[in-house]
Nucleic acid binder design. Structure first.
Length: 164
DNA sequence: GCCAACGTTGGC
DNA sequence: GCCAACGTTGGC
């Protein structure tokens, strides 16, 4: 019997986690990730989002969400391939994400490496609003600015069924 | 381009 | 520790 990685997770009693991560397609979109295959998710400078990034584990899946897009929405899936990576841009004075208050021996900003899994036709914010309540899916909440959000397994599965 | 939402900063 | 001012996000 051949076991998949997910089977091992189940056997070990580990639960896989699911996420939604935003990026502006003009800055870094799903086609950029498809080209690069793997990317370092740098530049997050919000503590709540950082805390979610820190709790990600290898094998977790995340929806790729295009923000500031016409229309905004979910456009693909990626897989976390490296957890708790120190975001190097915090120490780079030439970076937009430079943080002068972050110390090299106590970095403030951690992130992940994520790999391209698939792209699909957009599940628009409009559709997400029609399908989910703000309690079920945080991204449909008005005024939601968090760029990294957890997604419950049940909701992840329901979104997956909307993929055409 | 507007502006509501909301996180962060800094004076007190 | 409070909260006003300010800056940013992100939909529209």
């Amino acid at each position: 019997m051949k076991l998949s990685a997910v089977d091992y997770w189940v056997i070990l009693g580990l639960s896989m986690q699911y996420w939604l991560m935003k990026s502006e397609p003009d800055v870094y979109g799903i086609t950029d990730l498809e080209r690069d295959r793997i990317t370092l998710w740098d530049g997050v400078r919000n503590y709540q989002a950082r805390n979610y990034l820190k709790s990600m584990e290898i094998g977790d899946l995340a929806f790729f969400y295009h923000s500031n897009a016409k229309p905004p929405g979910i456009v693909g899936v990626m897989k976390i391939v490296e957890a708790r990576v120190v975001d190097p841009t915090q120490f780079d004075p030439n970076s937009d994400y430079y943080d002068a208050k972050s110390l090299t021996d106590a970095p403030r900003w951690y992130t992940v490496r994520a790999a391209f899994v698939r792209e699909f036709s957009i599940i628009s914010l409009d559709t997400l609003r029609q399908t989910f309540t703000p309690e079920e899916l945080g991204v449909v909440r008005q005024g939601n600015r968090l760029s990294v959000l957890p997604v419950q397994k049940e909701i992840f599965d329901r979104i997956s069924k909307l993929i055409s």
